[in-house]
Amino acid sequence: MPARFLAVIRVAAALVGGLVLLSCEEPVELNIDQARSRLVINSNFFPGEPVSLRISATRPVGSPVAAAITDAVVTLYEGDELAEELDYYTDESGRQGGHYRTQHFRPQVGQRYTVHVRAPGYDPVTAVSSIPEPVQLTGLQIVTLSSAVADDKLTYDFTLLVNYADPDHEVNYYDLRVYQRVTPYKLSDGGDTIRMSPYLKTVSTPAYEASQAETISVLLQDRGPNGGVQVHLRSHLDPRQELLGEIVAELRTVSPEYYYFQRSLGPDLSGVSGGLQEPIILFNNVNSGLGIFAGYTSVQLDLQLVASF
């Protein structure tokens, strides 16, 4: 009897385990009213450079990639004056189609810019922004530095202190970006070192390993708590192929739109489970649409991390 009872328990338990395992997910139809597709603007503009916009549209989850919007009418105003109507340019690479760009007009610091976009089948949208006065970097300093070699990779762990001339009595927004300048090289058959063109490579932090497509960026409002900003970073190199050059700090003085949008954009979570994590609610300064139209300026300063090779 006990043996039979245990057998019953065992079969029932297997049933429970199996049911739990088999039935934890199933396709679901949401039966929700799909919102009307909206125009999406993606534009950050810089003084002296053409104003460029990528224009796309929102589309329902589950739908295939939408065709590029090539027939939009995009007009840019400086103050209340028409600055230029932007032309469409097809991009050779990239899957987002082309972009709209000014041919002659170049934006300036301190002006207010308004963009209007209309395209067949969509509600027209508009967005406003400006370019703030640039703020200068006043100093770069390495506070701590250590290095380690693991798996043929050389890692520099360092703390960078960045100072900048944040004006008092006004609110300013910044985007501090840090890169490492790297020179690829190879050894010729004769034993000579052949250096190739240097390029800017991404750095990481101890807690976040950034991919090459990403940039370590610190968004700041006004001056840092101690007069500057300390950033703990890591530089990874392959010493068999790469030579470390300078650490480059780029301080972007940005419009509030830029700041809030980038902050809301956060890390790229596209690879993370969509259901288990709280999503990011995007900042939006496009009326009737979605996206960002924001100006910024930029200054750079570099610093040798270790003695030159």
Binding site: V61, D91, G94, A213, E214, L265, D268, P279, L282, G291
Partner: peptide, 25 residues
């Protein structure tokens, strides 16, 4: 629940995956 029902092109990486859009938490 914060449900995303729309997608947009990746803002930072033109070749990156689409981003889900959630309008309200």
């Amino acid at each position: 629940y914060s449900l995303s029902t729309e997608l947009v092109d990746n803002f930072n990486d033109p070749n990156g995956p689409d981003l889900p859009v959630t309008n309200e938490r």
